[in-house]
Amino acid sequence: MATYYHPAGEGLDIGGDFCDVFPLDDGRWAFLLGDVCGRGAIAATTTALVRHTARAVAPLLPGPEDVVTAINRALTNRPDSHGTGFVTLVYGQLTPTPTGLDIELVRAGHTPPLHLDTHRTARPVDMPGVLLGISPHSHVTSRNVHLWPHESLVLYTDGITEARRPDGDMFGDQRLADAVSSAAGVPAAQNVIEAVTQAVHTFTEGDDIDDDQAILVLTATEPQETPAAPPT
């Protein structure tokens, strides 16, 4: 696992991007990455509400859909003084297996994660799901992904894909996928981070970013025994 966070501007104001990874009681792990509308103290309050709700309810509920529904309920029930902005989120749970990692995840209005496979191809893992904190009905659907050894799941915020260079051109989804695919070697997760951040820095010609950037990379490692070959 590897993470990256770069605040916008000089980093003097609290940003809206956040991520978290924590263990569950049965050998699984929970992870989340998201973006809160706005900045400053209100954004920090909303970020804390999302993370604390997830940590509190995840051990008690069956799966990601239920956890995200609980987070949405907490957001729609917050007092107006604690903010009324929306939240985008990817939340999932992973289980180590003899052949890698089984992952169940939910996307709620967030940028689609990328699955980097054994052929070094990065494809979006898309699934329906609306923004959180807008309606009491979350309408999310989970998706299952298996990571074979050396495969990765890459979560990121839109500060990456919407980074712009001086002429206004945007980094975009395809450049991100190309950067993720170019990462190679061990440790794989950190190499993906470095490939993406270097590609963004080169594209923007080193200009200061105007939106927070966050990345979370989960990579399956080699098991103790040789697994069956992944499907071709």
Rank of each mutant, 00 (worst) to 15 (best):
A2E: 14
A2I: 01
Y4Q: 03
Y5A: 09
H6D: 08
G9L: 11
G9M: 01
G11W: 05
L12V: 07
L12W: 05
G15N: 03
G16I: 03
C19G: 03
V21E: 13
D25F: 06
D25K: 04
D26P: 07
R28T: 08
W29R: 09
L32A: 14
V36A: 10
R39I: 02
G40E: 10
A41F: 10
A41Y: 08
A44L: 08
T45I: 09
T47E: 15
T47I: 14
T47R: 14
A48C: 11
L49I: 10
V50D: 11
V50M: 11
H52D: 13
A54Q: 07
A54D: 12
R55Q: 15
V57F: 12
P59K: 10
L60H: 13
L61H: 10
G63V: 09
E65A: 15
D66Q: 14
D66V: 04
V67E: 10
V68N: 07
T69Y: 03
A70D: 11
N72K: 04
L75K: 00
N77D: 15
P79K: 07
P79G: 07
D80I: 09
H82Q: 14
H82K: 11
G85M: 06
V87M: 07
T88R: 01
L89S: 11
Q93C: 12
P96Q: 11
P98L: 07
G100F: 03
L101F: 13
L101K: 05
E104Y: 05
A108T: 06
A108W: 03
A108V: 10
A108Y: 06
H110S: 09
H110T: 04
T111P: 00
H115P: 03
H115T: 05
T121Q: 15
A122Q: 02
P124A: 08
V125S: 12
D126T: 15
G129N: 08
L132Y: 05
G133S: 07
I134S: 11
V140I: 12
R143Y: 11
L147Q: 02
L147M: 03
W148L: 11
H150R: 09
E151D: 13
S152C: 14
S152H: 08
S152F: 00
L153H: 05
T157A: 08
G159L: 00
E162A: 06
R165L: 02
R165P: 02
P166T: 05
M170W: 07
G172R: 03
D173K: 06
Q174R: 14
L176D: 06
L176N: 04
D178G: 01
S181E: 15
V186E: 15
Q190F: 03
I193A: 00
I193F: 02
A195T: 05
V196Y: 00
T202L: 07
T204D: 04
D207S: 13
D207A: 13
D208H: 05
I209K: 01
I209R: 08
I209T: 09
I209D: 01
D211H: 02
D212I: 01
Q213M: 14
L216S: 06
L218W: 12
L218N: 09
T219M: 05
Q224S: 13
E225V: 07
P227M: 11
A228C: 09
A229F: 10
P230I: 03
P231N: 13
